[in-house]
Amino acid sequence: MVVFVRTIILYIFVTLAMRLMGKRQIGELQPFELVVALMLSELATLPMQDTAIPLIHGIIPILTLMTLEILISFLTLKVEFFRKLFCGTPDILIKHGKVSEEELRRQRFNLDDLIEELRMMGYLDIADIEYAILETSGKLSIIPKAEKSPATREDLNLNHQSVKLPVSIILDGVLNKKNLSITGHDLNWLMENLKSKGIEDIKDVFIAMIDSKGNLFIQRRDKDEEKNKK
């Protein structure tokens, strides 16, 4: 039972810590963020299992790591010196279709890995690549030569409509009034549209949203589900 309660407390604490550290923590990790993520998981599990360890011995290091992470993120955001120190700098592995031996050796990145990465990104020939940049997060960014890069609508002189942000209005039978007002429509407009699709009640709608083209997309709830909800 003690372990159960401790687990709940530590889970909430670690989740809050991760949340406070910001969104970057869950996505692309910088070296210092990876260290924090690894340490956090280890620190939380020890007092979770061993009831002889006071909870504070888990909470204080997590709190300290969280503070350090916020401090380092702040410093790397504001001061270039710290950015270079903690995050490093991107390295150019291929320049104008030529692999940089020096950089590969420095990054301990072997040719097989490089060619594999290129293949995975859809580039078969090194000569087609203008730049291949090894980012600070460890990912490889490829900039193909102009003649090898995919054509855009602009290149082909095709008309294009600007894309709008999709906004959900009803999710699982629940109306989001705030989102409805963002779209510039009112409840009457929504009800009219629902009626035209043969829906009388908002609760019967599984999903209703304004899509990227500005059209209203409506999906009715399954008949069985409808009965259950009612």
């Binding site: 204080i60 709190l63 969280m66 503070t67 916020i70 702040f74």
Partner: peptide, 20 residues
């Protein structure tokens, strides 16, 4: 926003050291 972040960092560090 900079002042807010600095204050949060300062507050967190001072709370940890005070607890210690």
């Amino acid at each position: 926003s900079n002042i807010k972040t600095s204050l949060i960092i300062l507050l967190l560090f001072s709370s940890i050291t005070s607890i210690g």
